[in-house]
């Protein structure tokens, strides 16, 4: 009977560890990568807008040599404000499910006006110039990472959020039941209940801290390169921040578990003392 109760306790503790891990990670995920405001803050922090604007300008310059046009045609065809506005549109498409297109008419109009100032447009080169303008607009969309996958990403984010919310309800109920069961199984022995809580907290913290160390040992996050240097830098900052938040969560539980384990030791110390006193009497 005692073995059976111990096995039952072990299973309940295992369930509780999984529940703690779920709550911690779910909250971190929802408050970081799934939160538009968090992402906007990080983009601002990593100078994403000005970096992207510089990339846009240098991307345009790459087309000048093959176009046979002077570099002046690129003057003021795009602004940092436009880049910022368009990135906001992309983020809205991803996080709010809007379906807004990036409008490059302004860039095309400015570029055409600059070309006209050079007075080089003829009936022979008209289509070549139109294609050049089109290339510049495509280059702009590519640099600000305007892809056709924005709505797909939104659907994935939406599904994940809904799944996490549903899971949270289930996990909350499971946690309450598990805690009640653990209390009932240790109703006659408070020190064992405290010990079990300490065990749950300690294993949760070890699991998190080991996972963080494994991630750091196997993946060189700071070297991640996606699309371009500016985007990579923002992604690396976000990933490192998430890992540091998970790490902090692990440390907090570790400290709590140490406190609970110490309380457990004190209770055991006092209990032994009481037993000895009764024996002596």
């Amino acid at each position: 009977m005692k073995i059976l109760i111990n096995i039952l306790k072990f299973i309940i503790m295992l369930i509780l560890v999984v529940c703690i891990l779920f709550f911690g990670i779910k909250n971190i995920v929802l408050s970081t990568i799934m939160d538009k405001d968090y992402v906007l803050n990080k983009l601002e922090e990593t100078n994403f807008y000005s970096g992207t604007y510089e990339l846009v300008e240098s991307g345009f310059e790459n087309y000048i040599a093959q176009s046979g046009l002077e570099e002046e045609v690129l003057n003021n065809i795009c602004t940092e404000e436009k880049v910022k506005k368009d990135i906001a549109i992309i983020l809205n498409n991803i996080y709010n499910g809007t379906n807004e297109e990036i409008d490059t008419t302004e860039i095309a109009n400015n570029l055409n006006a600059n070309i006209d100032k050079l007075d080089v447009r003829t009936s022979q080169n008209k289509s070549a110039l139109d294609k050049f303008v089109q290339q510049i607009c495509t280059e702009y969309k590519n640099t600000i990472i305007n892809t056709k996958y924005e709505n797909t990403i939104h659907e994935i984010l939406n599904k994940t959020t809904n799944l996490l919310e549903k899971l949270q309800t289930i996990v909350t109920i499971v946690t309450i039941i598990a805690v009640i069961c653990l209390i009932l199984l240790n109703i006659k022995n408070i020190s064992k209940l405290v010990g079990n809580i300490g065990t749950v907290l300690l294993s949760s913290s070890i699991t998190i801290l080991v996972a963080i160390n494994l991630i750091n040992a196997n993946i060189n996050i700071s070297a991640i390169k996606l699309f371009n240097n500016v985007f990579s830098s923002s992604i690396v900052t976000i990933l490192q921040d998430i890992l540091s938040k998970v790490n902090k969560f692990g440390i907090i539980i570790l400290i709590t578990s140490i406190v609970v384990i110490l309380i457990n030791a004190i209770i055991n110390f006092v209990k032994t003392n009481q037993k000895e006193e009764i024996k002596e009497e």
Partner: peptide, 22 residues
């Protein structure tokens, strides 16, 4: 010894749980 025993058993069970999770 009694208090240490309780602490060690908590740590051993915790490590066992971590092992099972991994």
């Amino acid at each position: 010894i009694q208090a240490s025993k309780a602490t060690i058993s908590v740590i051993i069970v915790a490590l066992l749980l971590v092992g099972i999770i991994y």
